[in-house]
């Protein structure tokens, strides 16, 4: 198995819980030191840091809102200071939208959701990619969503945000290929996270997400580790010639 990121350092936005946490742990297991960003849940961030340290890797957590450029500057400077060169960036931080029709969607909500997914992603690329060009290899992974394919109703802010985030990825892949930087997208469907649980409760009245196992692909709801495995693959030697790609991890898009 050559899914190895030994000696590298990774910055994971929204890395304290859910998918981001699984990615942080997955990359640490494959050999990386880890910087995670979190916004509110300091306790969860500290727990994730402790779990990574227990794996024998360096882990640091930085509080900040990725939509805020100055917050990003502060977090990135601290991370570069603490970990040295960062050659893996995972743009994972995100929020769901409220499920309104476009005609009922408050413009403020659109700005907020796009702020985190799109401006947050650009902020971190802007701050981290230049120093990544000096690395032996760089990887930027966007955690998008199958929403970019389904573009369902009552999801405009999220659909808009994820589509724009993917546009950054496909463009960045072309721009940075000469610097040995790969840019890829992992698109989860429904995953058992706090966000996923809230989603099925709000849209389908499901109290326990595991009730959905039976009707799910391969008889189980997707786990954060499924997403992490795909991310680690993209960052590994096995995917050295893979860039500008989007992989949906959702048990098939149907």
């Amino acid at each position: 198995m050559t899914n190895n990121t030994e000696g590298r350092s990774a910055f994971i936005s929204g890395g304290s819980r859910g998918i981001g946490k699984a990615i942080a742990i997955g990359l640490a297991k494959s050999g990386s030191n880890i910087a995670i960003n979190y916004t509110r849940d300091k306790e969860a961030a500290q727990e994730t840091v402790a779990e990574i340290e227990a794996l024998g890797k360096i882990a640091k957590a930085y509080q900040g809102n990725v939509a805020d450029f100055e917050d990003c500057q502060r977090m990135v400077n601290s991370a570069l200071n603490d970990l040295g060169e960062i050659s893996i960036l995972i743009n994972n931080a995100g929020v769901a939208s409220r499920g309104s029709l476009i005609t009922d969607t408050n413009p403020e909500e659109i700005r907020k959701v796009i702020g985190i997914h799109v401006f947050g992603t650009h902020n971190l690329c802007h701050l981290l990619v230049p120093q990544m060009r000096a690395a032996e290899r760089g990887d930027v992974i966007m955690i998008s969503s199958v929403a970019t394919e389904s573009l369902s109703g009552r999801g405009a802010p999220y659909n808009m945000a994820k589509s724009a985030q993917e546009a950054i990825a496909f463009t960045l892949a072309k721009e940075e290929k000469v610097h040995d930087i790969r840019v890829n997208i992992v698109g989860p469907g429904l995953v058992e996270t706090d966000m996923g649980k809230r989603l099925v409760k709000a849209t389908r009245g499901v109290e326990d997400i595991r009730e959905l196992d039976k009707g799910s692909p391969f008889q189980r709801v997707c786990q954060p580790e499924d997403i992490a495995d795909a991310v680690v693959f993209f960052c590994s030697e096995d995917a050295a010639y893979v860039t500008g790609q989007r992989l949906y991890v959702n048990g098939g898009s149907f």
Binding site: N3, F233, V242, T243, L247, V249, N250, G252
Partner: peptide
């Protein structure tokens, strides 16, 4: 096992 939730997908391996 790492791809046990992946089906119906295409990975292009072309450096692009």
């Amino acid at each position: 096992e790492r791809a046990s939730y992946i089906t119906n997908q295409r990975i292009t391996v072309a450096g692009s």
